[in-house]
């Protein structure tokens, strides 16, 4: 079952030197699965995630044949209607929770406010719901956390709270943009398993944007590999280590590995033909 269908998505930024194409004709579909978009900085992976929610600010321009959510084209919606889509239907978790939470409100106030924005319920009902949400993201002692301010939270806690807030309206799709790259390795695991559990339990679609190939290979179902605004390869996550495209292979080989000591690491030789080749479709 297809939740989201993106066809021929372009993101362009006009500049003094001409138009810069950040995303060049990307197509893919998302079902009830964990879809990864991987690539290096400048590959357009984050822009793709933001463009789906039409969060690209002017002078950036988003064009697409369609971005349809349950058969309704988001490209045709007004900015007002998009506001209902963001959060209600599609939620987004960013890299650094510190910039996404309001520093002068307690976490409880923020969660309750977010919940009451979407549901007409009393304060006390919202409070109970907030506690339930925090428990769902494995926060011990949720009542204490509700009274705390964002700066009192560690990175991992902050990210879990963000995930809890994003899940309040019960969205169908979660877009996670490098949700764990600001976290320590030991915390990364916990946050990932929380995302995984929620997505599986609720049957949501997940778009997981990351630069980390090994992480994605373990965590996701399907992987889109982006290079300079285009998809160069689509493969199942479990087959990622046998990827065909020289770019994907190059990325994998350039990683140092504890098990295989080498004096020199393989260096990626970029072939100009990679960026010229048409984008591979990620549609199923």
């Amino acid at each position: 079952m297809t939740l989201l269908d993106v066809e021929n998505l372009w993101v362009q930024f006009p500049s003094r030197q001409g138009v810069f194409d950040a995303v060049r004709g990307v197509s893919f579909t998302l079902g009830r699965e964990r879809l990864a978009i991987v690539g290096e900085s400048g590959s357009g992976k984050s822009m793709t995630g933001r463009a789906i929610l039409r969060l690209i600010r002017p002078p950036g321009i988003v064009t697409a044949d369609q971005i349809s959510l349950d058969g309704i084209d988001l490209m045709k919606k007004s900015e007002r209607e998009m506001r209902d889509v963001r959060g209600q239907k599609i939620s987004m978790v960013m890299q650094d929770p510190k910039f996404s939470l309001n520093p002068v409100m307690t976490i409880g106030q923020q969660i309750i406010e977010a919940y009451r924005l979407h549901n007409k319920v009393s304060k006390s009902a919202a409070f109970d719901k907030a506690i339930e949400m925090l428990e769902a993201v494995s926060i011990r002692d949720p009542e204490r956390v509700m009274r705390a301010y964002p700066h009192e939270m560690s990175g991992g806690m902050g990210q879990r709270i963000m995930i809890a807030m994003m899940l309040i309206p019960n969205p169908e799709i979660l877009i996670a943009d490098e949700p764990t790259s600001a976290l320590d390795v030991s915390v990364q695991g916990q946050v990932l398993s929380i995302i995984d559990k929620l997505v599986t339990d609720r049957g949501m679609g997940l778009i997981f944007i990351s630069h980390d190939l090994n992480l994605v290979a373990d965590f996701c179902d399907r992987v889109l590999i982006m290079y300079l605004g285009r998809i160069v390869e689509v493969c199942d996550a479990k087959n990622l280590h046998n990827a065909k495209h020289p770019y994907t292979q190059g990325l994998l080989n350039s990683l140092p590995r504890l098990s295989e000591p080498r004096r020199k690491l393989d260096v990626l030789n970029r072939n100009p033909a990679w960026s010229e080749a048409p984008s591979v479709s990620g549609r199923v």
Partner: peptide
């Protein structure tokens, strides 16, 4: 840095 750039810098340092 990106992993491919990381490889170049680590090789340079070696």
């Amino acid at each position: 840095l990106d992993v491919s750039i990381q490889a170049e810098i680590l090789n340079l340092l070696t």
